[in-house]
């Protein structure tokens, strides 16, 4: 089996290790580029949201280099993401590719462990559990890595490039839980040490749609651009937080939902409640501003946007909402973030 899945930023490393632990040979598609996007746009329905297009392009490029089994998550509630996998499979089949396609539902962990994965990989549920544990640990590592990277980027951009390269290699290399734990500790301590540096000019909370939060290509490297202004980016959502949430291991989300329910009594789907709750949480922690990113036409995030306007008013904290479509010019994005950061700076004075 040559397995492939769409990239989700650094957290792809955890997914790769999960599949490898189950005995699959993972076929990583080439890094996301303009070509990936162009392929995705070409074969997608015009009005679908951007993550669909990019991940479809990802699959095409994986199939081109010999992948024969594709994995895609599914099962969002009341959001188009629920249709992604089925539609992508159909489109790819119509293009004439030969492959097996597995839609993996997020909301049936028992089926996942005891039926689906054992069937696909011909392994015991115990092995699936072990692989799952490795994935959780690895995603925690990816998250800690990203959090440390955010700090060093804000302090010293050139130094962060070296750190990124060095630690990515380390993270990809470790496979044993013990080693992962050591590295996790190391990264946490580095972050703590760097946080004492007073080179950080502003702190901004990043909220929004999860794919855009995870994948730098989709958000036009927003985090990198922000850090060039000496901004520390804080973000809660990741594969790790998602896994913890799905396996009911994350008590913190209760607080997030509590904050969110004040603004929206029912979930409109997707992760709108997370967006709203996290924004309030960041503000309570004293960030200077919030940046909200989501794909153009994303229904849940557009609903969250209206709650964010209210939050901005209630707490008197500026919130910048940015929707992304398939245009690749960074100019508009840079104008907006530059102005936003300037505004935060002038407010602080």
């Amino acid at each position: 089996m040559k397995a492939a899945f769409p990239y989700i930023g650094y957290h792809s490393i955890a997914l790769k290790d999960f599949l490898t632990a189950l005995g699959a040979k993972v076929c990583l598609p080439p890094p996301l580029t303009k070509r990936t996007l162009e392929l995705g746009v070409k074969y997608s329905p015009e009005m679908v949201c951007l993550p669909f297009k990019i991940t479809l392009g990802n699959f095409i490029e994986a199939l081109e280099i010999g992948a024969d089994t594709l994995f895609m998550a599914t099962g969002a509630r009341k959001c188009r993401f629920g249709y992604y996998s089925y539609l992508q499979e159909k489109i790819l089949k119509e293009l004439g590719y030969q492959f097996k396609f597995y839609s993996v539902s997020q909301y049936s962990p028992y089926e996942f462990v005891f039926e689906k994965m054992p069937q696909i990989f011909n392994v015991s549920p115990l092995k699936v559990l072990k692989a799952l544990y490795l994935m959780i640990k690895k995603s925690e590592l990816c998250e800690n890595f990203k959090n440390s990277l955010r700090v060093i980027r804000a302090i010293d951009y050139q130094k962060s490039l070296i750190f990124e390269k060095e630690y990515l290699k380390k993270i990809e290399g470790v496979k044993k839980i013990k080693e992962i734990n050591i590295l996790n500790k190391e990264l946490k301590e580095l972050r703590k040490k760097w946080l004492k540096n007073n080179g950080i000019k502003l702190r901004v909370g990043l909220v929004g749609e999860i794919y855009f939060l995870l994948e730098d290509f989709a958000n036009q490297e927003l985090e990198k651009e922000l850090s060039k202004f000496g901004v520390l980016v804080l973000s809660k959502r990741s594969l790790y937080s998602r896994l913890k949430h799905l396996l009911k291991m994350e008590p913190g989300f209760l607080k997030i939902y509590y904050y969110a329910r004040k603004y929206l009594s029912v979930s409109p789907g997707g992760e709108a409640l997370n967006t709203i709750g996290e924004a309030v949480n960041f503000i309570k922690k004293g960030v200077d501003g919030i940046i909200h990113i989501f794909p153009f036409t994303c229904m849940p995030e557009n609903i969250a946007l209206h709650s964010l306007e209210k939050i901005s008013e209630d707490y008197n904290v500026p919130i910048l909402s940015l929707s992304f479509d398939e245009h690749t010019s960074k100019t508009g994005l840079l104008t907006r973030i530059e102005a936003f950061l300037e505004l935060l700076k002038r407010r602080k004075k």
Binding site: P318, L322, R336, F340, E342, L343, R346
Partner: peptide, 11 residues
Amino acid sequence: GIPVDFAMNTV
């Protein structure tokens, strides 16, 4: 006299 908020047309 200090800019505290702004919005711009998007797409």
